[in-house]
Amino acid sequence: MASFSTNEIKPGMKVLLDGDPCAIVDNEYVKPGKGQAFNRIKLRNLMNGRVWERTFKSGDSLEAADVLETDMSYLYTDGEFWHFMKTDGSFEQFPADKAAMSDALDWLKEEESYVVTLFNGNPINVMPPNFVELEVVETDPGIKGDTAQGGSKPATLSSGAVVKVPLFVNIGDVLRVDTRTREYQNRVR
């Protein structure tokens, strides 16, 4: 496997640390005028999202991690795994376990495209698109005519996510939601 010297490590690169794949967040060069140079490297562990900071001697190297981000569409779940398929025409399928699904579980929709991070060929993280369109399956009845500001209520979407929506929203409406902030954007139909 290739490796990167601390001198060439840049944010975004993927390396192995203690066996886990990590994304470089920051690489700060520190050198006392007359002393050994060091690099303080901040990394995000891709397995658990935790941010680590480690110090290396300048010129040391870190092993590159075989990490690949690929677009895949969601197929189905069997209760234990969530199955995705590459969208490049290869029809190759990958099962993601619950740990990998933590960011995406609330926003699942069949045939929607997700960014799946593969480490040594296995999904370790699934990112939903920034916006998804989902149907409302449960909410208090809508108040006719109230299309302006004022008031909100919870609504459960087909994916299971509960978001705050304006009072006029009804069961069966399809909403556009920002998956990063969980905010309602608009009613699609």
């Binding site: 006392p32 002393g35 050994q36 060091f38 110090t55 001697k57």
Partner: peptide, 10 residues
């Protein structure tokens, strides 16, 4: 000296 330098710098 590396240890001293590292403690100093960081």
């Amino acid at each position: 000296d590396d240890a001293l330098n590292l403690l100093m710098a960081v």
